[in-house]
Nucleic acid binder design. Structure first.
Lengths: 185, 185
DNA sequence: GTCTATACCACGATAGAC
DNA sequence: GTCTATCGTGGTATAGAC
C-alpha cells in the first residue's frame, strides 16, 4: 500500500459524487475512472469490485459525520448540537433537492439491489439516529427515542419530498420548523 | 387494442410488484415476463419500451389512489379521511419496511436514472401532498400548507428509516403519533 | 396477436505487457 | 504500480415465422 499518489482518494471522491448524482447502478466504473482521471484498468488495483468501492464511499461518509459530531461535542448544549446538524442539512438543500439525501437514497438503492453491501449504509443511518437520540437524552427528555425517530424521519422525509417536487424550500421550511420545535422544549 | 386476454393487466401487476421489491433498474423485462407468464417477445406487443411499462405502473397507482380518495370523500370529516390514509399506510408497514414506500422509492430511483419518466411519479407525490393539504384546509387550518408538508414528510421519512433499519414498528409509531397530532387539532 | 431466436450494446471484471 | 485490450454476461429491443 504505497503512499505514492492520491488516486485512491480521488476515486472515492468521484464515486461518492457520481453515486449520489446518478445512483449506484447507473454509474459505471468507467464513469468513475473518467471523472477521477484514473485509467479504467487501474481502478481494479485499488478496488477489486464495485461493491468494495461503494463500501469505501460509505465508510468515508461515516467517518466524516463522526468527525463533525466530535467537533460539535465541544459545545455543551445538546440543542445547539442538533442545530449544527440541521444547519449542515440546510446548507446542502440545493443538492438534496436535485439528487436526494446522499445517505438516504443510497440506503434505499442498496437495500434493493446490493443487500450484502447495504448493511454499511443502513448502519450509518442507525448511527446518526442514535446520535440524534443521545442529544435529546442529554436534554433530559424521557421520550428521547421517539423524538429522535421523529426528527430523523422529518429530515429524510423532507429530502424525498423536496427531491420529488424539485423544491429546496421544502427542506428549508421543515428545518425551520424542527428548530422552533427543539427551541421550545 | 383487442380485449381478448388480460395480459396487459398481468404485466402491469408483475412490473409494479417487481419494481417495488427489486427496483426499476434491477428488474429486467425477462423477470416481468416470467412473473406474469407472458413470453418475453410478446411483452413488446403491449409495451414498446421499459419506460412505457413504468409509466403504466405509475398511472395505475395514481388511479388506484384517486379511487381510494374518492371513496373516503363520502365521509364528511376530513380528520377521518386522513386517518384512512394513515390506516392504509399502517396496513402496508411490513412491505414498506422490507422494500421502501412504493411511490417514494420509485420517485428517487427514476429521478436519478430516468428523468424523462420521473415526472409521472413526482406528479403522483404532488397529487397526494395536495390531497392531504386539502384535508387540513377543510379542517379550517390556516397553516394547511405547512401541515400537509409536515405529514407527507413524516410518512415518507419513516418509510426510509424503517426500510434502512428493517423495522416496521418505526412506521407504526410514527403513524400513531400523527394520528394523535391530528386528533388534538 | 403470439412466440423464438437473436442482434446489439454496455458493463464488470480479467489478462498480461510494461 | 500502471495501462490496454478484451472476455463474458446479461440486458433491451427487434426480426420474422407462425
Amino acid at each position: 500500500m504505497g503512499r505514492v499518489s492520491d488516486k485512491r482518494g480521488r476515486l472515492i471522491e468521484s464515486a461518492a459524487k457520481l453515486f449520489h448524482q446518478a445512483g449506484f447502478k447507473d454509474t459505471s466504473i468507467a464513469d468513475i475512472a473518467e471523472d477521477s482521471g484514473v485509467p479504467l484498468g487501474n481502478v481494479y488495483y485499488y478496488f477489486k469490485t464495485k461493491d468494495e468501492m461503494v463500501t469505501a464511499v460509505i465508510n468515508q461518509r461515516a467517518e466524516l459525520f463522526k468527525n463533525w459530531a466530535q467537533e460539535w461535542e465541544i459545545n455543551p448544549d445538546p440543542k445547539q448540537r442538533l442545530f449544527n446538524l440541521l444547519d449542515m442539512q440546510d446548507s446542502e438543500k440545493e443538492e438534496i433537492a436535485k439528487f436526494g439525501c446522499p445517505m438516504g437514497s443510497l440506503c434505499q438503492e442498496l437495500d434493493k439491489e446490493r443487500p450484502s453491501v447495504a448493511r454499511g449504509a443502513d448502519g450509518l443511518m442507525g448511527w446518526v439516529l442514535k446520535w440524534i437520540t443521545l442529544q435529546f437524552q442529554e436534554m433530559g427528555q424521557t421520550d428521547a427515542d421517539k423524538y429522535g425517530l421523529q426528527m430523523m424521519s422529518a429530515i429524510q422525509g423532507c429530502s424525498v419530498v423536496a427531491n420529488a417536487l424539485e423544491d429546496p424550500k421544502i427542506i428549508e421550511w421543515e428545518i425551520e420548523r424542527l428548530k422552533a420545535w427543539i427551541k421550545e422544549m
